[in-house]
Amino acid sequence: MPLRGTTANVPRNPYPPGLNPMLPLASRRYGAINWIGLATLYGKEVRRFWAVATQTVLAPLVTGLLFLAVFVLALGHRVDQIGGAPYVDFLVPGLIMMTIAQNAFANTSSSLMIAKVQGNIVDLLMPPLNALEMTIGIAGGGVTRGVVVGLTTGIAMMVFVPIDIAHPFFVMFHAVAASLLMALLGMLTGIWAEKFDHLAAITNFIVTPLSFLSGTFYSTTRLPELWQTIAHLNPFFYMIDGFRYGFIGHADAPIWTGVAVMLGVNAVLLLLVHRWFKRGYRLKA
């Protein structure tokens, strides 16, 4: 049996290549993108939520299942088929998307907010990362949280109700696009907010109502005409509608309009976040 710790006695070069302190310091030695920095930032964002997975993955899953139970038990036999699908089949994609949206938003907004309040935001601002790398690294963490939570919630729901997927492409596209959209919105909120109260206000008064009222629990065709028009101006509606199309093959709005809206809104938000990071808006003195 080998002695414990014997391998530790083998001398080896402790420095990664390019970081030998015996060599003189030099300027940035990487190309257009600092891949190591980007991967580190992304990894930090993922580990941040994974370390408390009970709260960040299991809790939304349980809440999603609860909503499923409540709505099926309270409404299952009262609501007619919607778009040719039983109410349960209609409800499940909506609930999964609601969970994805809320968690992608929570991940990025809380990450920036806590870093600002605790003062360790400098750890983000000091490293050699440019605005684009910061945007992608943090948004990537939010997208990962959204997709992981959506996947686990979906699998958990499958235990109780049969789930068919009609168009896998739309399921994947909308899961990722919606996660990105909410992650970017979360970043804007996290950068803008100065207190936890501001963040709570945006979550309680904007994100939760929009994720509840944009067709998660009912078809927007049931709304009065004026409200239908308003609903169709709301990006939340397209992410739920398109995601649901991937499952049941029925959408309230033209499916490619939804794809275009998601791409367009994401592009605008990406530019905005990038600009704010570049200017250091509310982050740098």
């Binding site: 609501v79 939760t208 509840f212 009222l213 629990f217 009912y218």
Partner: peptide, 12 residues
């Protein structure tokens, strides 16, 4: 209000 609105809109 949200809970009630959702039920109101989902029901006839």
């Amino acid at each position: 209000l949200l809970y009630l609105a959702v039920f109101r809109l989902a029901l006839h």
